[in-house]
Design a protein around this nucleic acid. Structure first.
Length: 744
DNA sequence: TCGGCACAAATTTTT
DNA sequence: TTTGTGCCGA
């Protein structure tokens, strides 16, 4: 393997094959190249068997890319090598041996929508109000517990003296129970159960320890505790563990990623060899200087400084617009101008933003200028209703125990099986500790259900599902999908559903057809062609096919842009409260601001040559217009790297004063009211029946009267929330949008 | 069972 | 502003 084209640091990372290695790979430092070369080096120069290598990534895209590049560089066959995402690696392990920990090996995988349904069921069964215990919130709590490897028992034990959390622990326990009964695992279980299996079964553990003699993990900064543990168990004996990551690009903390995994790697393993990849092959030095300076404001990080051989470059351009419409027009105009003058194609441009809601005005402006664009994010292909319905059918065909899927399709298309009927069936299933499907089979013995409903159910179970199940053995997946569509007249159903909107109906039908072609493609390329494998693939993939390679401007959130690069990048909405997002600004905890700053770092380092940062003076968001404050990150940019295109001076200094005021309020009230309240300057008014009370009068210390809670003192303000200490009712949070307050 | 209306909430999302 | 949800009357 030729290593001469690597720089010294890269080469070191490749050649140090034994023992724990930490590669701190800055943005654009060629880490994929290092990883693929390292694999090639292991096989060709060190004589390691491909089957002894495990390379883990987070996304399918990264895994596919790595496999392709490894196959390109290698002479020998690489098909024995495991190059996969955490999740598909775990599925592979579990399909083989999960029966050893009491699960069915042909489990289905529940996505987040299925989780919501299941949690709602559990809440109902436990008589818990889903407003007090919001399903989304419960799921993220459960997910957090699983990420940290707490099972329901441990979780319950940890929260014994917290009534609310204790209830959530009960939901967790029931949820887990139901998953098992349905032969289903959620995404987090895939990791959790693999760890459980490896910890509890020495035989299985020995097999994989012996098999994976060299382990590599990409994007290590994004690993959760559970993933960390998984890797640690596998690598314990041989310690040939090589992790690659960039702590400065850790932007998924809210999803369970634990940045400490990378920060403390050196503590977790003995004699860690650390390599820093600091040479950047992507951006100009000016862009890197800006990124370096901004990120240096973070306390919790490994020191790194990116540099580039591209010494020249354009200054970073800052534009202050009147509002988001003007801002978007500016972006569109500049794209038109630059593409014309510098002869660049549209695919060279990206517009990045903090929140999806911002895409709207940019889209409008690009449409006005007739600039083609591609928007990334939004509803995923497999999450579309029409596709989820079909998947539910397939799942039931595969695994009739899947109650969630049964319930989804039992009345799709409408068969006159209403909620009441389903409820009765569910009760009976719970009573008999059976699946819904088995109750459905014996429906004739169930006298409290109307004859009409019973007939529909028999028709559904025998003719629809029954027939389709017999076809499972003979037909390939794509054909099976067609049979499903045929037997339920799905196209007719779609027409009916969107009868007011022809266009929509056609789009849905196109999606269905796309789904069939996904299945056909699967039959072409997959080794295993059975339904189970297909469903697994569908569950672990978010996009149906590769992104379009058409010449269009890219619009996406900064999160989605991670790992990508563009010659010209616009980051819009550089405003405090938007970026960094309000929640992080309000937070008592600096770690949230630090994560926003890392996000900013990710955004800046996407740009290869030209970077524009834009902000507004006032922004309309969610139907409300508010004056903007420049992002604090703007202030952190080195002056010599930036160029202000219009009169930004004033706005920028204004911003500084503003958020310093915010920070001061924060400090002050943190001390006085025990970390519960933060003050925030708001320029809105609270409407009263007769008069308008200026919100400026409602400030910490003010005496107010609330229609329900009586007289109290304002102790803090957070966004639209006003925290008030009432004389009779104690401290309460009031939403200023929906309450009328009188200032006394 | 379904359509319509009022009300509430609205980061980010690799699998 | 947009989107989702819950409740009510037909």
């Amino acid at each position: 393997m030729n290593l001469d084209t690597l720089n010294p640091a890269q080469r070191e990372a490749v050649e140090k094959t034994e023992g724990p290695v930490l590669i701190l790979a800055g943005a654009g430092s060629g880490k994929t190249r290092v990883l693929t070369t390292r694999i090639g080096h292991l096989i060709e120069d060190k004589g390691v068997q491909p089957a002894n290598i495990l390379a883990i990534t987070f996304t399918n895209k990264a895994a596919n890319e790595m496999r392709e590049r490894v196959e390109e560089t290698l002479e020998s066959d690489a098909s024995d090598m495991w190059i996969s995402t955490f999740h598909s690696c775990c599925v592979r392990i579990l399909r083989k041996d999960i029966n050893r920990i009491g699960y069915n090996r042909s489990f289905v995988i529940y996505d987040s929508a299925d989780q919501v349904t299941l949690v709602k069921d559990c809440l109902k069964e436990l008589n818990l109000n889903d407003k007090v215990f919001e399903p989304k919130m419960i799921i993220s709590t459960i997910s957090g517990a699983k990420d940290k490897l707490y099972d329901p028992k441990q979780f319950k034990a940890m929260h014994m003296n917290d009534n609310r959390m204790s209830k959530i622990a009960d939901v967790y326990a029931l949820y887990q129970d139901r998953l098992k009964r349905n032969s289903a695992l959620d995404f987090d279980d895939l990791i959790f159960k693999t760890v459980e299996l490896l910890k509890s079964d020495k035989e299985v553990l020995d097999y994989y320890r012996n098999r994976f003699k060299y382990i590599m993990v990409d994007e290590y900064q994004d690993t959760s505790k559970a993933q960390y543990e998984l890797i640690k168990i596998l690598a314990r004996e041989h310690q040939n563990i090589c992790v690659v990551g960039d702590d400065d690009q850790s932007i998924y903390g809210w999803r369970g990623a634990d940045i400490r995994n990378i920060l403390e790697f050196e503590k977790d393993y003995d004699d860690v060899h650390v390599v820093k990849l600091e040479q950047n092959y992507r951006s100009t030095q000016i862009i890197l200087d800006a990124a370096n300076t901004v990120i240096s404001n973070n306390i919790e990080r490994k020191r790194k400084r990116l540099w580039s051989e591209k010494k020249d470059g354009e200054l970073i351009k800052i534009q202050v617009a009147q509002d988001e419409i003007e801002e978007s027009d500016f972006v569109a105009d500049m794209i038109a101008k630059i593409s014309r003058e510098q002869n660049r194609s549209y695919k060279d441009f990206a517009v990045l933003y903090r929140a999806n809601a911002q895409s709207r005005s940019v889209e409008d402006a690009l449409n006005r200028s007739q600039i083609p664009y591609n928007i990334y994010g939004g509803t995923k292909f497999y999450e579309r209703k029409e596709i989820k319905d079909l998947i539910a059918y397939l799942r039931v065909i595969q695994n009739p125990q899947d109650d969630i899927s049964i319930k989804r399709i039992i009345n799709v298309p409408r068969r006159g099986i209403g909620l009441r009927t389903i409820e009765k069936i569910e009760d009976r299933a719970n009573l008999k500790q059976e699946s819904i499907y088995s109750v459905l089979i014996d429906i004739e013995t169930n006298s409290d259900i109307s004859t009409k409903a019973r007939n529909s159910i028999s028709e559904f179970v025998d003719n629809v599902i029954g027939t389709l199940r017999t076809m499972r053995e003979v037909y390939p997946v794509s054909k099976l999908i067609e049979k499903v569509i045929e037997s339920i007249d799905y196209y007719g159903y779609i027409d009916e559903l969107y009868k007011g909107n022809k266009e929509e109906a056609e789009e849905r039908k196109d999606n269905v057809k796309e789904f069939i072609s996904v299945a056909m493609e699967f039959e072409q390329i997959s080794e295993e062609k059975d339904l189970e494998t297909f469903l697994t693939g569908v569950a672990l993939t978010s996009e149906s096919s590769e992104e379009e390679e058409i010449d269009k401007v890219s619009l996406m959130t900064i999160h989605t842009s991670k790992g990508l690069e563009f010659p010209v990048v616009f980051i819009v909405g550089m405003e405090d409260g938007l970026f960094p997002i309000a929640r992080a600004v309000r937070s008592m905890n600096d770690s949230e601001i630090e994560e926003e700053r890392r996000l900013c770092y990710v955004g800046i380092t996407r740009a290869k040559e030209i970077l524009y940062l834009t902000l507004t003076q006032k922004r309309t968001l969610y139907g409300k217009t508010n004056p903007s404050i420049a992002s604090r990150f703007m202030e952190e940019l080195p002056k010599e790297c930036i160029e202000r295109l219009n009169s930004a001076e004033k706005e920028l200094s204004y911003s500084k004063a503003s958020y310093n005021v915010l920070d001061k309020y924060k400090q002050k009230y943190m001390n006085t009211i025990n970390k519960t309240a933060v003050a925030k300057q708001v320029n809105a008014t609270i409407k009263d029946k007769e008069k308008e009370t200026n919100i400026d009068d409602i400030k910490p210390g003010a005496r107010v009267h609330h229609p329900k809670f009586g007289v109290g003192t304002v102790v803090g303000m957070m966004g639209t929330d006003v925290t008030i200490a009432f004389e009779q009712q104690g401290i309460k949070k009031i939403n200023k949008e929906y309450t009328t307050l009188d200032v006394l």
